[in-house]
Amino acid sequence: MASDIVRRDGDGLPERRPRREAARHSRQERELVHRHNLDIGQLMATGKHEEVKAILRKQFTEDGMQDVVDIANLARDLVGEDPFLAALIVPIAQEYARTTSRDIRDYGRRRGL
């Protein structure tokens, strides 16, 4: 059906979700991000800089680790059972994970956060 958005469920099988449900989910995500940004702005305005730094560090860490998981899953999907592709792709995914971990660990140390 043309009005459906195709997604993958946990088993990698196509899952159909009506556009209206997808739009509602997207709107809820935007509202959540907006409230989060308002909370950070209020904390900054009241001088609670340490709380803001902690929130940003946590968000950066969660986003970075989710990116590492996504890259690892993509590498696994691309490689499949092919050892030649594994020799090419796995080192790239490992380097990405190392770099992201280092960036998370060092976040704020060089920038004064």
Rank of each mutant, 00 (worst) to 15 (best):
A75S: 11
R30C: 01
E62W: 12
K58C: 02
P18R: 13
M44Q: 11
T46G: 01
P91W: 09
I55T: 06
A75M: 07
D11H: 02
N37Q: 01
E29G: 01
R17I: 15
T61V: 06
S3V: 06
E21S: 10
V79P: 04
A2D: 10
Q42M: 03
D39V: 11
A54T: 10
V90C: 03
F60V: 08
R76Q: 12
K48L: 02
T61I: 05
A2S: 10
L38R: 14
R7N: 03
A22N: 04
S26F: 02
N73L: 13
P91Y: 09
F84R: 14
L74S: 12
P83I: 05
R16W: 13
I92T: 12
G41K: 12
V69M: 05
Y96D: 09
R7H: 06
Q28K: 11
P18T: 07
F60N: 07
V33E: 09
R98C: 07
R30Y: 04
R7T: 04
D9H: 09
K53C: 09
A75E: 03
D70G: 08
S26K: 07
A86I: 01
R16A: 05
L43M: 13
F60L: 13
D103N: 14
Y96F: 15
R105M: 09
E51P: 03
L43C: 01
R111E: 12
G10N: 06
S3A: 06
F84K: 13
A54W: 03
H25L: 07
E81L: 12
R19Y: 11
I5H: 12
F84N: 08
H36Y: 11
D63Y: 13
H34A: 11
G108T: 07
T100M: 14
E50P: 00
R105E: 09
